[in-house]
Amino acid sequence: MALTRLPDWRRRYEATIDDIKTRPFKWGVHDCGPGLAGRLVLAMTGVDLSANFSVDYTDAASAARKIRDLGFSSLGELVGALLPTIHPSQAEIGDVAALLMPGPIGHALGVVNGERIFVLTDTGIGTVDLLDAVSCFKVG
């Protein structure tokens, strides 16, 4: 799906980061999919990619079951079905990044912010190096 960023996407991106930066990670409520990547894509484009996916999971195992029920082997594969896949070297601010994670979902999602990637942590937003991304997805 090709998305178009809104004219004021940068302001909306920054406001959304400010809104979620101290909210801790919680499965099915505020996690890397709908809580971080989904909210930022919505803010930048006006398109809610999470709207078609119910958030009825409470841990990594139930999230992985949900992903498999949708026909995907990992969270990265699911996002790749929605957005164009790009190499991390092509990623720009606001693009979604997939990071390898141990456990059943295979990937965590983050959002590119220059040479760093915003990720959710137990205490809010943290960052990891862009080089940690295994793939990225173009947002607009």
Rank of each mutant, 00 (worst) to 15 (best):
L3F: 15
L3C: 03
T4R: 15
R5V: 00
R5W: 06
R11C: 04
R11A: 15
R12L: 13
Y13G: 00
Y13Q: 01
Y13W: 15
A15L: 14
A15S: 12
T16Q: 13
I17E: 07
I20N: 13
I20H: 14
K21S: 07
R23S: 09
R23G: 05
R23F: 11
P24L: 00
P24F: 05
P24G: 05
K26E: 15
W27K: 02
W27C: 04
V29F: 08
D31A: 10
C32V: 02
G35I: 01
G35Q: 03
L36S: 08
L36K: 03
G38D: 12
G38T: 04
L40I: 09
L42Y: 14
A43Y: 03
A43K: 00
A43N: 04
M44C: 13
V47N: 12
V47H: 11
V47W: 10
D48Y: 01
D48N: 13
L49F: 06
N52E: 12
F53W: 11
F53Q: 09
S54M: 02
V55C: 05
D56R: 09
T58F: 15
T58H: 12
A60E: 13
A61W: 13
S62C: 10
S62K: 00
R65W: 02
I67V: 12
R68K: 14
L70I: 03
G71I: 07
F72T: 11
F72E: 11
S73V: 06
S74L: 07
L75C: 06
A81F: 08
L82W: 12
L82K: 12
P84V: 10
P84S: 10
S89H: 12
E92I: 08
E92M: 11
I93D: 13
G94K: 01
D95E: 07
D95Y: 02
V96T: 03
V96W: 08
A98I: 11
M101F: 10
P102I: 05
P102M: 02
I105S: 03
G106Y: 13
L109K: 06
L109W: 12
G110S: 02
N113K: 07
I117L: 05
F118P: 02
V119D: 06
T121A: 14
G124M: 07
I125D: 02
I125H: 08
G126A: 11
T127S: 03
D129R: 06
L130V: 11
L130C: 09
L130S: 05
L131P: 00
A133E: 04
A133M: 03
F137Q: 08
K138N: 05
K138L: 11
K138A: 13
V139T: 04
G140T: 00
G140S: 07
